[in-house]
Design a protein around this nucleic acid. Structure first.
Length: 308
DNA sequence: CAGGCGTGGCA
DNA sequence: TTGCCAAGCCT
Protein backbone atom coordinates (compact mmCIF):
# COMPACT_ATOMS: atom_id res chain seq x y z
CA UNK A 1 0.00 0.00 0.00
CA UNK A 2 2.65 2.53 -0.90
CA UNK A 3 0.78 4.21 -3.71
CA UNK A 4 -1.54 6.74 -2.04
CA UNK A 5 -4.68 6.00 -3.98
CA UNK A 6 -7.54 8.37 -3.41
CA UNK A 7 -10.55 7.09 -1.55
CA UNK A 8 -13.37 6.58 -4.03
CA UNK A 9 -15.49 9.36 -2.65
CA UNK A 10 -12.83 11.97 -3.23
CA UNK A 11 -11.54 10.98 -6.66
CA UNK A 12 -13.79 13.48 -8.38
CA UNK A 13 -13.53 16.23 -5.81
CA UNK A 14 -11.19 18.40 -7.85
CA UNK A 15 -11.92 16.99 -11.28
CA UNK A 16 -8.32 16.08 -12.03
CA UNK A 17 -9.40 12.88 -13.73
CA UNK A 18 -11.58 14.91 -16.11
CA UNK A 19 -9.26 17.74 -17.14
CA UNK A 20 -6.77 15.95 -19.36
CA UNK A 21 -9.24 13.80 -21.36
CA UNK A 22 -11.59 16.71 -21.99
CA UNK A 23 -8.81 19.11 -22.93
CA UNK A 24 -7.17 16.51 -25.18
CA UNK A 25 -10.52 15.86 -26.82
CA UNK A 26 -10.91 19.60 -27.37
CA UNK A 27 -7.52 19.80 -29.09
CA UNK A 28 -8.77 17.35 -31.69
CA UNK A 29 -12.42 18.32 -31.97
CA UNK A 30 -12.76 22.04 -31.36
CA UNK A 31 -14.73 23.82 -34.06
CA UNK A 32 -12.84 26.38 -36.07
CA UNK A 33 -14.89 29.41 -35.07
CA UNK A 34 -13.82 32.94 -36.03
CA UNK A 35 -13.96 34.28 -32.48
CA UNK A 36 -11.45 31.62 -31.48
CA UNK A 37 -8.85 32.96 -33.88
CA UNK A 38 -6.14 35.05 -32.23
CA UNK A 39 -6.94 37.99 -34.48
CA UNK A 40 -10.49 38.14 -33.16
CA UNK A 41 -9.20 39.90 -30.07
CA UNK A 42 -11.16 40.71 -26.92
CA UNK A 43 -13.73 42.77 -28.83
CA UNK A 44 -14.41 39.88 -31.19
CA UNK A 45 -14.80 37.53 -28.25
CA UNK A 46 -17.13 39.93 -26.53
CA UNK A 47 -19.28 40.48 -29.62
CA UNK A 48 -19.54 36.73 -30.14
CA UNK A 49 -20.60 36.18 -26.53
CA UNK A 50 -23.40 38.73 -26.82
CA UNK A 51 -24.64 37.13 -30.02
CA UNK A 52 -24.38 33.60 -28.68
CA UNK A 53 -26.61 34.31 -25.69
CA UNK A 54 -29.51 31.98 -26.50
CA UNK A 55 -28.72 31.90 -30.22
CA UNK A 56 -27.15 28.98 -32.15
CA UNK A 57 -23.66 29.26 -33.63
CA UNK A 58 -24.79 28.74 -37.22
CA UNK A 59 -27.03 31.78 -37.11
CA UNK A 60 -24.44 33.94 -35.39
CA UNK A 61 -21.61 33.33 -37.86
CA UNK A 62 -22.67 35.58 -40.78
CA UNK A 63 -23.86 38.42 -38.53
CA UNK A 64 -20.67 38.27 -36.52
CA UNK A 65 -18.52 38.65 -39.63
CA UNK A 66 -20.50 41.65 -40.87
CA UNK A 67 -20.49 43.23 -37.43
CA UNK A 68 -16.73 43.03 -36.96
CA UNK A 69 -16.09 44.26 -40.48
CA UNK A 70 -18.28 47.30 -39.88
CA UNK A 71 -17.28 48.00 -36.28
CA UNK A 72 -13.78 46.58 -35.76
CA UNK A 73 -13.35 48.38 -32.44
CA UNK A 74 -15.74 49.33 -29.63
CA UNK A 75 -15.30 53.03 -30.45
CA UNK A 76 -16.49 52.42 -34.00
CA UNK A 77 -19.77 51.03 -32.73
CA UNK A 78 -20.14 53.71 -30.06
CA UNK A 79 -19.86 56.36 -32.76
CA UNK A 80 -22.85 54.97 -34.64
CA UNK A 81 -26.49 55.31 -33.64
CA UNK A 82 -27.88 52.54 -31.43
CA UNK A 83 -30.54 51.92 -34.07
CA UNK A 84 -27.81 50.88 -36.48
CA UNK A 85 -26.78 48.19 -34.02
CA UNK A 86 -30.39 47.03 -33.83
CA UNK A 87 -30.62 46.99 -37.61
CA UNK A 88 -27.36 45.05 -38.04
CA UNK A 89 -28.53 42.58 -35.42
CA UNK A 90 -30.92 41.30 -38.05
CA UNK A 91 -32.94 38.28 -37.03
CA UNK A 92 -30.69 36.97 -34.28
CA UNK A 93 -33.49 37.53 -31.79
CA UNK A 94 -33.60 39.26 -28.41
CA UNK A 95 -32.71 42.61 -29.98
CA UNK A 96 -32.19 44.29 -26.62
CA UNK A 97 -28.83 42.54 -26.77
CA UNK A 98 -27.90 44.80 -29.68
CA UNK A 99 -28.81 47.85 -27.65
CA UNK A 100 -26.81 46.59 -24.68
CA UNK A 101 -23.81 45.77 -26.85
CA UNK A 102 -23.94 49.31 -28.17
CA UNK A 103 -24.18 50.57 -24.60
CA UNK A 104 -21.25 48.40 -23.58
CA UNK A 105 -19.18 49.74 -26.47
CA UNK A 106 -20.03 53.28 -25.38
CA UNK A 107 -19.01 52.58 -21.80
CA UNK A 108 -15.79 50.94 -22.96
CA UNK A 109 -15.00 53.97 -25.08
CA UNK A 110 -15.75 56.43 -22.32
CA UNK A 111 -14.48 54.60 -19.26
CA UNK A 112 -11.86 52.16 -20.47
CA UNK A 113 -10.01 54.01 -23.19
CA UNK A 114 -11.63 51.96 -25.92
CA UNK A 115 -10.24 48.62 -24.73
CA UNK A 116 -12.41 45.77 -23.48
CA UNK A 117 -11.61 45.64 -19.75
CA UNK A 118 -9.67 42.66 -18.45
CA UNK A 119 -11.12 42.78 -14.96
CA UNK A 120 -14.09 40.53 -14.23
CA UNK A 121 -15.84 43.13 -12.06
CA UNK A 122 -15.43 45.81 -14.70
CA UNK A 123 -16.83 43.47 -17.35
CA UNK A 124 -19.74 42.64 -15.10
CA UNK A 125 -20.56 46.33 -14.77
CA UNK A 126 -21.15 46.68 -18.51
CA UNK A 127 -24.71 46.49 -19.85
CA UNK A 128 -25.67 43.07 -21.15
CA UNK A 129 -22.83 41.31 -19.35
CA UNK A 130 -23.81 38.97 -16.54
CA UNK A 131 -21.92 36.38 -14.55
CA UNK A 132 -21.48 34.02 -17.47
CA UNK A 133 -20.39 36.54 -20.10
CA UNK A 134 -17.96 38.29 -17.75
CA UNK A 135 -16.28 34.98 -16.99
CA UNK A 136 -16.30 33.94 -20.64
CA UNK A 137 -14.64 37.12 -21.89
CA UNK A 138 -12.08 37.10 -19.09
CA UNK A 139 -11.29 33.46 -19.78
CA UNK A 140 -11.46 33.24 -23.57
CA UNK A 141 -10.06 36.65 -24.40
CA UNK A 142 -7.56 37.07 -21.59
CA UNK A 143 -6.79 33.53 -20.49
CA UNK A 144 -7.87 34.11 -16.92
CA UNK A 145 -9.04 31.49 -14.44
CA UNK A 146 -12.78 31.71 -13.98
CA UNK A 147 -15.65 29.27 -13.61
CA UNK A 148 -17.46 29.66 -16.93
CA UNK A 149 -20.85 28.21 -16.18
CA UNK A 150 -23.15 28.18 -19.16
CA UNK A 151 -25.94 25.77 -20.04
CA UNK A 152 -23.50 23.37 -21.74
CA UNK A 153 -21.12 23.19 -18.82
CA UNK A 154 -23.97 22.86 -16.36
CA UNK A 155 -25.27 19.86 -18.28
CA UNK A 156 -21.82 18.23 -18.47
CA UNK A 157 -21.34 18.66 -14.73
CA UNK A 158 -24.85 17.46 -13.95
CA UNK A 159 -24.16 14.25 -15.81
CA UNK A 160 -20.48 13.57 -15.31
CA UNK A 161 -20.29 14.57 -11.65
CA UNK A 162 -23.77 14.68 -10.15
CA UNK A 163 -25.14 11.77 -12.12
CA UNK A 164 -28.39 13.33 -13.28
CA UNK A 165 -29.61 13.95 -16.80
CA UNK A 166 -30.27 17.67 -16.52
CA UNK A 167 -29.18 20.51 -14.26
CA UNK A 168 -31.76 22.51 -12.26
CA UNK A 169 -33.81 25.12 -14.12
CA UNK A 170 -31.96 27.98 -12.46
CA UNK A 171 -28.26 27.96 -11.62
CA UNK A 172 -27.75 27.07 -7.98
CA UNK A 173 -25.09 27.93 -5.45
CA UNK A 174 -24.13 24.27 -5.41
CA UNK A 175 -23.41 24.36 -9.12
CA UNK A 176 -21.21 27.44 -8.76
CA UNK A 177 -19.36 25.83 -5.92
CA UNK A 178 -18.83 22.68 -7.94
CA UNK A 179 -17.62 24.65 -10.96
CA UNK A 180 -15.07 26.47 -8.82
CA UNK A 181 -13.93 23.23 -7.23
CA UNK A 182 -13.42 21.64 -10.63
CA UNK A 183 -11.36 24.53 -11.95
CA UNK A 184 -7.74 23.55 -12.62
CA UNK A 185 -5.32 25.51 -10.44
CA UNK A 186 -3.16 26.64 -13.33
CA UNK A 187 -4.54 29.70 -15.11
CA UNK A 188 -3.84 28.59 -18.66
CA UNK A 189 -5.18 25.09 -18.02
CA UNK A 190 -8.28 26.58 -16.43
CA UNK A 191 -8.96 28.64 -19.53
CA UNK A 192 -8.58 25.60 -21.76
CA UNK A 193 -10.82 23.59 -19.46
CA UNK A 194 -13.53 26.25 -19.64
CA UNK A 195 -13.58 26.21 -23.44
CA UNK A 196 -13.21 22.43 -23.63
CA UNK A 197 -15.97 21.54 -21.18
CA UNK A 198 -18.31 23.95 -22.93
CA UNK A 199 -17.51 22.48 -26.33
CA UNK A 200 -18.08 18.98 -25.01
CA UNK A 201 -21.57 19.98 -23.94
CA UNK A 202 -22.24 21.64 -27.28
CA UNK A 203 -21.05 18.78 -29.48
CA UNK A 204 -21.29 15.51 -27.54
CA UNK A 205 -23.04 15.86 -24.20
CA UNK A 206 -26.04 17.53 -25.80
CA UNK A 207 -29.49 18.02 -24.28
CA UNK A 208 -31.02 15.48 -26.63
CA UNK A 209 -29.39 12.61 -28.53
CA UNK A 210 -26.16 12.77 -26.62
CA UNK A 211 -23.39 10.65 -28.16
CA UNK A 212 -21.67 9.03 -25.22
CA UNK A 213 -19.59 6.77 -27.47
CA UNK A 214 -17.71 9.85 -28.58
CA UNK A 215 -17.28 11.22 -25.07
CA UNK A 216 -13.76 11.24 -23.62
CA UNK A 217 -15.05 10.82 -20.05
CA UNK A 218 -17.92 8.39 -20.55
CA UNK A 219 -16.07 5.79 -18.47
CA UNK A 220 -16.01 8.21 -15.53
CA UNK A 221 -19.41 9.80 -16.08
CA UNK A 222 -21.67 9.30 -13.06
CA UNK A 223 -24.83 9.49 -15.15
CA UNK A 224 -23.53 7.01 -17.71
CA UNK A 225 -22.34 4.63 -15.00
CA UNK A 226 -25.76 4.80 -13.38
CA UNK A 227 -27.39 3.67 -16.60
CA UNK A 228 -28.44 7.12 -17.80
CA UNK A 229 -31.60 7.41 -15.72
CA UNK A 230 -34.27 9.76 -17.04
CA UNK A 231 -34.73 13.16 -15.50
CA UNK A 232 -36.99 13.18 -12.47
CA UNK A 233 -39.18 16.07 -11.49
CA UNK A 234 -41.09 18.76 -13.32
CA UNK A 235 -40.19 19.40 -16.92
CA UNK A 236 -38.87 22.77 -17.88
CA UNK A 237 -41.75 25.10 -18.58
CA UNK A 238 -42.07 25.34 -22.32
CA UNK A 239 -41.77 28.86 -23.62
CA UNK A 240 -44.80 29.84 -25.61
CA UNK A 241 -44.41 32.21 -28.48
CA UNK A 242 -47.31 32.21 -30.91
CA UNK A 243 -49.73 34.97 -30.08
CA UNK A 244 -47.55 36.58 -27.41
CA UNK A 245 -46.35 40.14 -27.17
CA UNK A 246 -42.93 38.85 -28.10
CA UNK A 247 -44.17 37.77 -31.48
CA UNK A 248 -45.84 41.14 -32.07
CA UNK A 249 -42.71 42.98 -30.99
CA UNK A 250 -40.71 40.92 -33.43
CA UNK A 251 -43.03 41.76 -36.30
CA UNK A 252 -43.03 45.45 -35.48
CA UNK A 253 -39.28 45.63 -35.21
CA UNK A 254 -38.86 43.72 -38.47
CA UNK A 255 -40.73 46.47 -40.31
CA UNK A 256 -38.54 49.15 -38.76
CA UNK A 257 -35.34 47.25 -39.50
CA UNK A 258 -36.24 46.94 -43.14
CA UNK A 259 -36.92 50.64 -43.55
CA UNK A 260 -33.96 52.58 -44.91
CA UNK A 261 -32.00 54.55 -42.29
CA UNK A 262 -33.41 58.04 -41.98
CA UNK A 263 -36.75 56.97 -43.36
CA UNK A 264 -39.29 56.84 -40.53
CA UNK A 265 -42.19 54.43 -40.77
CA UNK A 266 -45.80 55.64 -40.45
CA UNK A 267 -47.96 54.07 -37.78
CA UNK A 268 -50.26 52.73 -40.50
CA UNK A 269 -47.47 50.46 -41.74
CA UNK A 270 -46.93 49.12 -38.23
CA UNK A 271 -50.65 48.57 -37.76
CA UNK A 272 -50.62 46.00 -40.54
CA UNK A 273 -48.43 43.51 -38.69
CA UNK A 274 -51.06 42.60 -36.06
CA UNK A 275 -54.82 42.74 -36.13
CA UNK A 276 -55.53 43.14 -32.42
CA UNK A 277 -55.13 46.86 -31.57
CA UNK A 278 -54.71 46.59 -27.80
CA UNK A 279 -51.92 44.06 -27.94
CA UNK A 280 -50.36 45.86 -30.88
CA UNK A 281 -50.25 49.12 -28.97
CA UNK A 282 -48.89 47.43 -25.87
CA UNK A 283 -46.12 45.81 -27.88
CA UNK A 284 -45.15 49.09 -29.53
CA UNK A 285 -45.17 50.87 -26.18
CA UNK A 286 -42.91 48.18 -24.82
CA UNK A 287 -40.44 48.62 -27.66
CA UNK A 288 -40.40 52.37 -27.08
CA UNK A 289 -39.85 52.05 -23.35
CA UNK A 290 -37.09 49.53 -24.01
CA UNK A 291 -35.39 52.07 -26.26
CA UNK A 292 -35.65 49.85 -29.30
CA UNK A 293 -38.04 52.20 -31.10
CA UNK A 294 -38.06 55.97 -31.24
CA UNK A 295 -41.38 57.77 -31.68
CA UNK A 296 -41.36 60.91 -33.83
CA UNK A 297 -44.00 63.59 -34.40
CA UNK A 298 -46.85 62.86 -36.80
CA UNK A 299 -47.20 59.19 -35.79
CA UNK A 300 -43.85 58.23 -37.29
CA UNK A 301 -41.44 55.68 -35.82
CA UNK A 302 -37.85 54.67 -36.40
CA UNK A 303 -35.01 52.73 -34.85
CA UNK A 304 -33.31 54.83 -32.17
CA UNK A 305 -31.08 57.52 -33.67
CA UNK A 306 -30.21 59.36 -30.49
CA UNK A 307 -27.38 58.19 -28.33
CA UNK A 308 -28.24 57.82 -24.68
C1' DC B 1 -36.70 34.80 -8.41
C1' DA B 2 -40.04 33.78 -11.88
C1' DG B 3 -41.15 35.64 -15.88
C1' DG B 4 -40.30 38.46 -19.99
C1' DC B 5 -37.60 38.78 -23.88
C1' DG B 6 -36.89 36.60 -30.69
C1' DT B 7 -36.07 33.47 -34.01
C1' DG B 8 -35.56 29.42 -36.76
C1' DG B 9 -34.24 24.55 -37.26
C1' DC B 10 -35.13 19.99 -36.36
C1' DA B 11 -37.28 15.50 -34.60
C1' DT C 1 -47.49 19.61 -36.83
C1' DT C 2 -46.01 20.89 -32.47
C1' DG C 3 -42.61 21.01 -28.95
C1' DC C 4 -38.09 21.61 -27.74
C1' DC C 5 -33.89 23.71 -27.95
C1' DA C 6 -29.89 27.28 -28.74
C1' DA C 7 -22.60 30.19 -25.20
C1' DG C 8 -28.31 34.64 -20.69
C1' DC C 9 -29.61 39.09 -18.87
C1' DC C 10 -32.55 42.03 -16.32
C1' DT C 11 -36.18 43.34 -13.13
Amino acid sequence: MTAPTNPPHTTSANGEHLHAPVIDWFEDNARDLPWRHPDAGPWGVMVSEFMLQQTPVTRVLPVYEQWLARWPRPADLAQDAPGEAVRAWGRLGYPRRALRLHGAATAITERHGGDVPTDHAQLLALPGIGEYTAAAVASFAYGQRHAVLDTNVRRVFARAVTGVQYPPNATTAAERKLARALLPPDEQTAARWAAASMELGALVCTAKNETCHRCPISAQCAWNLAGKPDHEGPARRAQTYAGTDRQVRGKLLAVLREAAPGTPVPQSALDRVWHEPVQRARALDGLVSDGLVEPLPDALYQLPATRT
